[in-house]
Amino acid sequence: MKESLMEIVCCPMDKHDLELDADERDDGEIISGTLTCTDCGESYPIEDGIPNLLPPDMRDGA
């Protein structure tokens, strides 16, 4: 994902801002990392360059 997407995305549950913790970057894109809600503290993974902002109970394996 592009870092500029941070201006648009939010926590799906309470709509508060997210904080980005990038593990791997490539050519300006974030390939893997974590997005954490600044209010409720829920964390959302970024995998293969795609942020997974599904509610936690809808994620794979949930």
């Binding site: 994902m1 592009k2 997407l5 648009i8 995305v9 939010c10 926590c11 799906p12 549950m13 360059g49 795609i50 942020p51 997974n52 902002l53 599904l54 509610p55 809808m58």
Partner: peptide, 12 residues
């Protein structure tokens, strides 16, 4: 910009 998300809980 691809985002995994629920249409009933839009993460925008």
């Amino acid at each position: 910009d691809l985002v995994a998300g629920d249409a009933a809980a839009i993460p925008l």
